[in-house]
Design a protein around this nucleic acid. Structure first.
Lengths: 112, 112
DNA sequence: CTTGAATATGCCTTGACAGGTATATTCTCC
DNA sequence: GGAGAATATACCTGTCAAGGCATATTCAAG
């Protein structure tokens, strides 16, 4: 989870991931499209690979990188828990707004 | 998007966010629960705030921090595009075109 | 087996950032 | 208005990671 977020937090890495979203690509093509130098692309791909975000498939001297689904699914699952609790809180907020504001003192569950 | 990921990539910040998922909390409580020093918590909350992940609400000398829904929704939208393209690729790989059609129709009935 | 293409890796430098500590700020209450 | 709680900020320091560049590695083809 944290590895996934760390890997995606780097701007150029995010660009690489978004490029790979369309289709698998060899290193050189990624470098050319994103105007990055080949060594940095290789390094970023190494990080992405270590984080389990991409898989490599060798074809001749080329290495085709492609996204793996699992980390994204995990991220989605994690997000789900937030969606739930936050919409709950939203509902509560909307209740407060549409009903009465004077009842704000009901928030006494400061129970730590 | 990148700001969100960068903010979440830091381990202690992630812990804070997960703590706030349950309910809004004041700084001191966060520090105590996560066994972090108060200044570091304030700094992390500053980063989270700048990234738009949290809102602050002053109550006396306390500051109650709570999650904002928007960044998480955006993350979810972003993730959606990956889910789509990656499952598409899967489908192509499995070559189950007609099966997929039936599946989609079933999903439509469910409201997707 | 030499050459050249595609890619990975090692080394260096630099900037960003997190933690530690002290201090400033803001508020309540007496 | 003085004391103390809750929080923010300033400054310093060490660490880590990204870019630049040179070089190693691997492979295909002649």
């Amino acid at each position: 989870m944290n590895a996934t977020l760390t890997a995606l937090a780097e701007p150029n890495r995010l660009r690489i991931v978004e490029l790979l979203r369309d289709r698998p690509r060899p290193v050189g093509e990624i470098a050319r499209r994103l105007r990055l130098r080949q060594p940095q692309v290789s390094k970023h791909l190494r990080v992405l690979s270590d984080a389990g975000l991409v898989d490599v498939r060798p074809v001749a001297q080329q290495r085709i990188y492609e996204l793996r689904a699992e980390p994204f699914n995990e991220l989605d699952t994690w997000l789900e828990t937030f969606r739930r609790s936050m919409s709950d809180r939203m509902d509560r907020l909307e209740d407060l707004i549409s009903e009465r504001k004077a009842k704000k003192e009901r928030e006494k569950e400061r129970g730590d």
